[in-house]
Design a protein around this nucleic acid. Structure first.
Length: 469
RNA sequence: GGCGCUAUAGCCAAGUGGUAAGGCAUGGGUCUGCAAAACCCUGAUUCCUCGGUUCAAAUCCGAGUAGCGCCUCCA
């Protein structure tokens, strides 16, 4: 299969170090607030990637971290820890906040059919590892102490900017609001490996270290957790585009300095979800959560479909119109699929033909939009229902769109409807009588009254049924 | 200022040098007492602009334009 690699900026054949086994690392959530649907887009695409690897016969060893410490709003002394800010806001301890938002994240993932790796590791349990790696970096001459902190010295590297050809002089410091210069740094690109108590008095979580009581910088956690659980090589690392610089750049710097060899060959980055005027982000306050979508009568699967209709390497614009389009399309598609009734034997020729089509789409840099088109092609194909069902179930093992699950409808029915089924059927009976007597005014009145309750009548040749809207 | 990415219908989107897939929405029709649902039909002489290469360009090259992202919190 072919995948775009941010490192080479080309679509290339994906290869693994060990045949048929992928080691995969994905940067996990920072659990100081709810994940927004933009964050979730990235996890959806990574989930598709993992499931597609499996579909293609790979075994996948995957690790994800939980950032529950050390995520500062800047490297300078005035920076505040995001976890600490969250804790203050909610009058909880840092670990309580972490647990609360980790659980919320897991719930969102469950709704979206995102499978969380078994190895889902909080940074706070691996601090000893970080200290060891930082010590080695210090011994090797890649780290220095300044102002009580330990910094990574980027001038010791042959090449620091692995992804883009920046010149250090061209970088502007403090471009973003709230980011301040750190006077302790020797080079613009240097970054903190370890903070000491000199930073904040009220830092909640602290560990003892050779450099004093303190806590780790943000970038070190992903490198260390990856190396601990996946070894000194990793096949693919994933995250959102904003991670390219500085996070992933710094990870490469410290990991390769530590290991003394190339670390990860393939980098997978998902583009952002934008709303009108720019990206969705927590700090800008313009974000939507999965819950807010649900409150507006939408479902998690509609959002997953919305994401899959686009390509992971293209910025996706979220608007009322674009999302409603996708939601409509999803519900219509699902109704068609649920109407299929098993009949006949699976036609291997047809099955193989569409499987080949699906693989061609997904092999081509995970072209999920084309993969979904294949679903429509199958529904239109002149073949028996069993063949269609077999194909769609097979594809849904990757797409995870709940194409054969009716639950969402059932839930809505239970939640919203004031009338019992018997009452509804009585009304339908009454309307049928009115229609027979050509009292259409009364018949329409009954229909309208039911519609107000969210009950939509469907007249068919064999009688009237209803559905819940 | 530097470094990148993107541009195809109202919206989402396929396309990888051979004459513009698919979906949603819209409009029309069938059905219906009327609706709804369902089903059928419906759209780009052209792919941001201008040049160039070629028998042939949405696709390759050059120059623009617009939008988005990153430059040490970020998916």
């Amino acid at each position: 299969m072919k995948l775009y690699n941010t490192l080479t900026r080309e679509i290339e054949e994906f290869t693994t170090r060990v045949p048929n086994v992928v080691s995969m690392y994905t940067c996990g959530p920072t659990v100081y607030h709810f994940a927004h649907i933009g964050n979730l887009r990235t996890y959806i695409m990574e989930d598709i990637l993992e499931k597609y690897f499996k579909y293609r016969g790979y075994r996948v060893n995957r690790v994800m971290n939980i950032t529950d410490i050390g995520h500062l709003s800047s490297d300078a002394d005035t920076g505040e820890d995001k976890m600490l800010l969250g804790a203050k806001r909610e009058k909880k301890t840092v670990l309580e906040v972490a647990k609360y938002y980790t659980d919320a994240f897991l719930q969102d993932c469950a709704k979206l059919n995102i499978v969380i790796p078994e190895k889902f590791i909080p940074a706070t349990v691996e601090v000893e590892e970080f200290i060891q790696v930082i010590s080695v970096l210090e011994k090797k001459g890649f780290a220095y102490k300044a102002g009580g902190n330990v910094y990574f010295d980027t001038s010791k590297l042959k090449e620091y900017h692995k992804f883009f050809k920046f010149k250090e002089d061209d970088l502007e410091e403090g471009v973003r609001d709230g980011v301040e210069k750190d006077k302790n740094k020797r080079n613009k690109n240097d970054f903190v490996l370890w903070f000491t108590q000199s930073k904040f008095d009220d830092q909640a979580l602290k560990w003892d270290s050779p450099w004093g009581i303190g806590y780790p910088g943000w970038h070190i956690e992903c490198s260390c957790i990856s190396m601990k659980y996946l070894g000194e090589y990793v096949d693919i690392k994933c995250g959102g585009v904003d991670n390219i610089f500085p996070h992933h750049t710094n990870e490469i710097a410290q990991s390769e300095a530590f290991l003394g060899h190339e670390w990860c060959k393939h980098w997978f980055h998902t583009l952002h979800l934008n709303i009108v005027g720019g990206k969705m982000s927590k700090s800008l306050g313009n974000f939507l959560t999965l819950s807010s979508l649900e409150e507006n009568g939408h479902t998690a699967m509609e959002y997953r479909f919305f994401c899959l209709q686009s390509h992971y390497r293209k910025a996706l614009q979220f608007s009322e119109e674009s999302f409603t389009n996708a939601a409509n399309a999803y519900q219509k598609l699902k109704e068609k699929i649920l109407a299929l009734q098993e009949s006949g034997a699976v036609d291997r020729g047809i099955f193989d033909k569409f499987t080949t089509k699906f693989i061609a789409a997904m092999d081509n840099d995970l072209n999920t939009a084309l993969a979904i088109t294949t679903i429509y092609d199958i529904l239109k194909e002149n073949t028996n229902a069993s063949t269609k069902i077999a194909l769609l179930k097979s594809f849904d093992s990757v797409l995870s769109l709940n194409l054969f699950v009716q639950e969402e409808w059932i839930q809505k029915e239970k939640k919203d409807i004031a009338l019992t089924e018997r009452e509804i059927l009585a009304k339908i009976e009454e309307r049928a009588r009115a229609k027979k007597e050509k009292d259409f005014a009364k018949a329409d009145a009954i229909r309208d009254a039911l519609a107000k309750e969210g009950i939509v009548l469907i007249d068919t040749a064999s009688g009237t049924t209803y559905t819940i809207k």
